[in-house]
Design a protein around this nucleic acid. Structure first.
Length: 556
RNA sequence: GGCCCCAUGGUCAAGCGGUUUAAGACGUCGCCCUCUCAAGGCGGAAUCAGGAGUUCGAUUCUCCUUGGGGCUACCA
């Protein structure tokens, strides 16, 4: 019997000339200090990373760094259908934007670096095939020639029979006990085949395991003879990850929750291979409301391109905002920590597996915007300027040109109210800045004014004229404001708001009304940062020009 | 259908048997401050899905129900 298995293995894998031992010695165990965690980020090369996988990559990175371990990047491209051209590039770019630099992995040209490579699964096909062959030779795996139609038929039969388990197992696994001669005949006939692992479980068997995040879990064992090598010779995820995670020395596989059900199957693969079981940590996925159904569902790359990290960056959100927001979703005590340590590096937040939240959070754009406004409000004007530039250079060339020609001026208006006790929180993303500050540039100032019925144009004319005549850029803000009050008072505007509110009928308005006349004339809008600062920044000439333009338009 | 995960306000969440008349943040509402806005301050409304148990005592432990999500592919 033994020899028969070997014969089958040789028949199926005439090309494989190496043994598992070869690879076992090629990739020796890592020598790391006790407690060091080795993690990996293992995406398919679909071209981009979405919020959920970015979060897991944060976990991967942080746990490895905090424990003195290793974090590596592995490209899982065994599904040729999903592979996108330049798909690796986008992933590396996204990670890099967040300062995540894998210790080992692949570079932009898809060249592997690090001692356990290659780190692209299709380049490791020979390794998987070697182990698969070994499994066949041991009688733990076998070729299956069933067609898609046959598999479908099996399922229909099972459904008709009211079987509780659907799949390729037991008496339904008709290729399980093929003889060497039968197999040879089919191979000679050129029939395609897959390799299946013989399940060691029976219907009703239970398995227990411990998830790093979820704790003890018990479920039905996997009775299916799962496919470990597809007919194209490449392995599916289950087999590839088992071999790679062992050979590459992973200690904890942090992955999305949808894998939880497959753990029994994965455990059987590890066991068949004779590998110690890698630990698993299953992370809840981020959800969103599906527009068509109105219910929650996990975000997906295919359906929700807007949740791609790159879309966030493209919209002009700083990476730090995305990072902070994800942390507030993920954990558990992060916001509290952030309050106490407003300027700490994010990667120094002490994560533990136990504290990662179990339930899938809904992506909340309001909260995200607030987080981002806080992040930007805590930046210096230099940092905001650089962020704006970097964004604009790529997505708004006109804006980039304007601000790059006026760096000091730009920083000056960015610094308005920035160094107060409580800095302004009005920028959520860099793409907001143009609309927010366009009036600082004559070429963008469009001449639309938010005027309304309350504007008393007969008052505005003399007020502006007097304001222009008395404006002195050298005086401080209080003096400036007192002057406005004095001018306003002459034309029936209360010098303080309280007086006005007490007796609105006797006034045309109050000093704030006067400010608003000026504000609208200078910026076109009713809302702006500190008006005094705007006047100074515009300078007397441009200020006067805008006031006159307004008078020409509205106060003939 | 089978199996699994999850379950505190609209959202994210503290909580891990008594110190809780259940933190905090976002959102929302009101007031204050104020040259507008953005902030900021103060305050309000709003949550333990339901039912059994265990216990002297359950948001916290167990079970059931319900709800949401996931897996059930030669996809990952």
């Amino acid at each position: 019997m033994e020899t028969n298995y070997t014969k089958i293995a040789d028949l199926l894998f005439p090309d494989v000339d190496k043994t598992p031992d070869y690879y076992l010695s090629l990739y020796p165990r890592r020598k790391l200090k006790d407690g060091a965690i080795v993690t990996r980020f293992a995406p398919s090369p679909t071209g981009y990373v979405h919020m959920g996988s970015l979060l897991t990559s944060f976990y991967d990175y942080v746990f490895a760094k905090q424990s003195g371990g290793v974090f590596y990047l592995r490209i899982e491209d065994t599904d040729l259908e999903r592979t996108v051209e330049n798909g690796v590039e986008g992933i590396i770019r996204d990670l890099k934007a967040f300062d995540i630099k894998p210790d080992e992995g692949v570079d932009l040209d898809k060249n592997s670096y690090g001692p356990y490579g290659p780190y692209i699964q299709t380049e490791r096909a020979e390794i998987y095939r070697t182990f698969a062959k070994s499994l066949v030779a041991q009688g733990k795996a076998y070729p299956c020639f069933c067609t898609k139609d046959e598999i479908d038929a099996i399922r229909h039969t099972q459904e008709a029979n009211g079987e509780s388990q659907i799949g390729y197992y037991g008496k339904y696994a008709k290729c399980r006990n093929l003889t060497f001669d039968e197999i040879k005949a089919k191979v000679d006939a050129g029939l395609p085949f897959v390799i299946r692992l013989k399940s060691t479980a029976n219907v009703g068997d239970r398995v227990k395991f411990t998830d790093k995040i979820r704790g003890q879990i018990e479920m039905s064992d996997s009775i299916n003879d799962v496919i470990i090598l597809k007919s194209n010779g490449l392995p599916p995820y289950n087999f590839a990850h088992a071999i790679d995670d062992y050979l590459m020395g992973t200690t904890v596989a942090i992955r999305s929750n949808e894998w939880l059900n497959n753990v029994p199957e994965h455990m059987q693969i590890f066991k068949a291979l004779g590998f110690p079981q890698v630990e698993y940590a299953h992370v809840a996925f981020i959800q969103k409301i599906d527009e068509t159904t109105g219910t929650k569902r996990k975000i997906s790359k295919r359906k929700d391109p807007e949740t791609a990290v790159s879309s966030m960056l493209e919209a002009g959100y700083p990476t730090q905002s995305v990072h902070e927001y994800l942390y507030t979703l993920a954990n558990t005590n992060f916001e509290e920590w952030r309050l106490k340590n407003p300027h700490e590096d994010l990667y120094s937040f002490p994560f533990t597996f136990e504290k990662i939240s179990l339930s899938g959070a809904l992506f909340d754009i309001d909260k995200f915007n607030d987080v981002s406004k806080r992040v930007i409000s805590n930046m210096t004007e230099d940092e905001v300027y650089h962020g704006m530039m970097k964004w604009a250079e790529q997505y708004d060339k006109e804006w980039a040109k304007i601000i790059s020609q006026n760096p000091d001026y730009t920083k000056a208006f960015l610094s308005i109210d920035r160094h107060n006790q409580n800095p302004r929180k009005d920028i959520a993303k860099y793409s907001d800045t143009k609309a927010l500050y366009s009036y600082f540039f004559d070429e963008l100032f469009d001449g639309n004014y938010e005027v309304d019925d309350t504007f008393r144009y007969s008052d505005i004319k003399p007020i502006f004229e007097e304001y222009m005549a008395t404006f002195d850029p050298k005086v401080d803000k209080d003096t400036w404001f007192n002057n406005i009050k004095a001018i306003g008072a002459k034309y029936g505007y209360a010098s303080n708001v309280k007086d006005y509110k007490r007796d609105p009928a006797s006034y045309h308005g109050h000093c704030g009304t006067v400010c608003n006349y000026i504000r609208v004339a200078l910026t076109g809008r009713k809302n702006s940062p500190d008006l005094y600062s705007i006047c100074l920044l515009l300078g007397r000439d441009r200020m006067n020009a805008r006031l006159k333009k307004f008078l020409d338009l509205y106060c003939k």
